[in-house]
């Protein structure tokens, strides 16, 4: 059973809870294969998204997940709202709650915002990405995708390549994968490695070749192009040379290794087109699975006793 009505991060979940969400998602995956992709459990509930950072895929994925559970979905558009008139985030959130919403899907550039809101709101808060902290539903859909291909998580070797320091996707995946017993490797230049990351039980690599060797899953992350101007990297070309996932490098992984990317991709920066579009890529499956996983999250949180 899920203990909290909020999903703030993978940090806060137990392995048992993670598996419960994934199992529930499998059921919804079947729903998505039907001709009529809609079930009634959240009829009469409303889900509001409050995104302080641009997002297309996550927001759309949540919207479809909510609608397929028969909930009403409303996007609270920050760029046209009172937020830009100086309203505090707490006031914005309380306003949305007073409108009668049951779920708030929140994304914010500052870590801890979902936690801040969960302290003042009665409604369920779902973290759709906060700063460099967590993006729990992304990690859950990644696990779901890995499970679909590998049938297990425990004992797998998962190599995560990219801007670990600024990546909430990396963080959530590290928590999720280590909780379920995978071996996690993180691969990136030292300038993009967060402090004391090895204490999370991951192996640190600065060489991509060594890091992807014999792994079961290669996960590449989006490189924010502004990292170069901030002095983390000399050039995007050099980044690609050292950390880009090429067909050549992918050969070092196990033959049946899968390639993942949370999107949106920078082709030619962190991943070569031949790999992104190649037979080992499961990138588009990740997107599809995202809906099933988010349906599971909404469904299970709705069942948590208030």
């Amino acid at each position: 059973m899920i203990k909290s009505k909020h999903l703030l991060g993978i940090k806060e979940l137990s392995a048992k809870e993670i598996y419960h969400i994934l199992d529930t998602a499998s059921g919804f995956k079947d729903v998505l294969k039907r001709d009529i992709k809609k079930v009634p459990p959240l009829r009469g509930k409303s889900v509001v998204s409050l995104f302080f950072e641009p997002s297309t895929r996550t927001k759309t994925s949540f919207a479809l997940a909510a609608k397929r559970l028969s909930a009403d979905f409303v996007n609270f558009s920050v760029s046209t709202s009172s937020v830009i008139k100086g309203e505090t985030i707490q006031d914005t959130a309380l306003t949305i709650q007073s409108l009668g919403a049951d779920f708030m899907i929140v994304r914010h550039a500052s870590s801890g915002v979902p936690h801040l809101l969960s302290n003042i709101l009665e409604m369920s808060v779902i973290n759709a990405g906060d700063g460099a902290n967590e993006h729990p539903t992304q990690a859950l859909l990644d696990l779901f995708t890995i499970l679909a291909h590998k049938k297990r998580i425990e004992g797998l070797t998962v190599s995560i390549i990219g801007d670990i320091a600024h990546s909430r996707v990396a963080k959530s995946n590290i928590y999720a994968l280590t909780k379920l017993g995978a071996n996690v490797r993180v691969i990136c230049p030292p300038t993009l490695m967060p402090a004391e990351i090895e204490k999370l039980g991951v192996d640190v690599f600065h060489s991509t070749d060594k890091g992807v060797k014999n792994c079961d899953v290669v996960m590449t992350l989006r490189l924010q192009l502004e990292r170069q101007s901030k002095g983390f990297l000399p050039s995007l070309e050099e980044y690609f040379n050292l950390y880009g996932l090429t067909s050549e490098r992918l050969k070092l992984a196990k033959d049946d290794a899968i390639v993942m990317h949370p999107g949106p991709m920078n082709r030619g920066v962190e991943i070569e087109s031949a790999v992104a579009d190649g037979p080992q890529s499961v990138i588009l499956e990740q997107v599809t699975n995202g809906i099933a996983v988010r349906m599971a999250v909404l469904y299970l949180l709705a069942g948590v006793k208030k």
Binding site: S111, G112, A132, E134, R168, K171, A195, E196, K199, L200
Partner: peptide
């Protein structure tokens, strides 16, 4: 402070 805790809470150290 920059360190393990800043890494796990995702705040810049």
């Amino acid at each position: 402070n920059e360190g393990f805790v800043s890494t796990i809470v995702g705040l810049q150290g």
